[in-house]
Design a binder for these strands. Structure first.
Lengths: 128, 128
DNA sequence: CCTAAACTACTAAGCACATAGTATCTAGGG
DNA sequence: CCCTAGATACTATGTGCTTAGTAGTTTAGG
């Protein structure tokens, strides 16, 4: 199958901890996970993620320290692209509209986003 | 497990066909799927989706016609919320920024979206 | 009436993810 | 030297998704 693309729910949780903290041992990850999981469960997930190329590992004393090998940015992009393709028919407009309609975006946030869009827009029209 | 929440990849493909067309028989769905799947495979997916409550079924002659029971909107919302929570730390801004930065958007689209945001913003501030 | 075609129901195999137990190793304190 | 604590490696179970085959039913045509 060599999907190598999609992370499972828990796998994603674990990756998120590592992205936030930069690195972690099994114990550290276990502690920083929202959900309570057995030590060995966390270890298994980490090993699976390593096998799939999402992490690398360094020895640290008698333990191992795990580091993200892929950037969160890359996963964000991948997941977003997939969501766009599947549920939103490839229309970013539809997605953003949904976001605006469904979420409690404050006017403040909206203004910031609108500004960002305007800036970006300007760039696209001919930066420098 | 009664997850009832997340659709698999193919399940989502099938739902998309039904959302687009309004309804479909096994053969119709099979034909409108991008991927080539055996008739019985499509049937199985449809039955599974029905069992999970995503579809309902009506007899039509000797065949069955399947209808979406959940709205695409609902699934969009669910999937978007989930993506937001997991990979984007609950920040719609970050998500939109990503969308913009990844240059999936033409200036034209950006302008339309910005307008939509402005309108929404106005609403929030107090539409007259 | 009988056969072919279309359709459904039942069954099944393969794989990935979630979860965790047992066995083993290693370092440090008595 | 021995034992305990902490760590990893190996193994295992349950579940869900994907894919599809086989058996059975129903309908239309000859």
């Amino acid at each position: 199958m060599v999907d190598a693309g999609s992370l499972g729910e828990r796998e994603l949780d674990v990756m998120t901890v590592l992205w936030n903290d930069g690195s972690g041992t099994v114990t550290e990850v276990q502690e920083n996970l929202g959900v309570p999981l057995a030590y060995t469960t966390v270890l298994t997930i980490l090993r699976n993620l390593e096998a799939k190329g999402f992490l690398r590992r360094e020895e640290e004393g008698r333990a191992h320290r795990y580091f993200p090998k892929v950037k969160q940015r890359a996963e964000q992009r991948r997941a977003l692209a997939r969501l766009l393709d599947t549920l939103f028919a490839g229309s970013p407009e539809a997605l953003i509209a949904q976001l605006v309609d469904d979420h409690d975006l404050t006017p403040k946030e909206l203004k910031r986003i609108a500004k960002r869009l305007r800036d970006s827009s300007a760039d696209d029209r001919g930066a420098s």
